[in-house]
Amino acid sequence: MIDVRVQSPVFDVGEEQRQLLAGRRDIGAVVTFTGLVRDFNERPDVQALSLEHYPGMTEAALRDIAEQATARWPLDGIRVVHRVGRLSPSDPIVMVMVASAHRRVAFDACDFLMDYLKTRAPFWKKEHTASGTYWVSARDSDARDAARWEEA
């Protein structure tokens, strides 16, 4: 039901979806979010991104967030894959895939999972740009996005 992974190799969204749906006939909707490395962020000309995590805690945090989603919505499956290590612009970083009987639930749960992942899962990004290397700052907008789910 819940499958979370932290890995450095690239993931294949199609393959992830095949595995999520294997043998199921009751799922009516799958919503997938894929996050990619942009070539501009706090500074232009991002050449690469290094992603660090806290082994043990990161996996536990992702699982906890997924469990919160299943407590909120009637879901049939969640797969979360987050990459670590050095990535280049256009590389996929993260995938959140949610399956449910109906689309609204799947959209909402996927949105929730990404908001919580960005503000609660221990990952840190370092950007390598033409003008130097720096650790990416947390964004207030991400915290505001995550706070939306607390009122509901």
């Binding site: 993260v94 990404m114 992942l117 650790w135 700052s137």
Partner: peptide, 26 residues
């Protein structure tokens, strides 16, 4: 021990404590 903590969280021998900046994954 891999769970978020605060100033009052109690500690005992063998515990693993981590300090880190705000997270920026996704």
């Amino acid at each position: 021990n891999h769970a978020m903590a605060n100033e009052e969280t109690s500690l005992s021998e063998g515990d693993e404590v981590a300090f880190f900046p705000p997270v920026t994954g996704g």
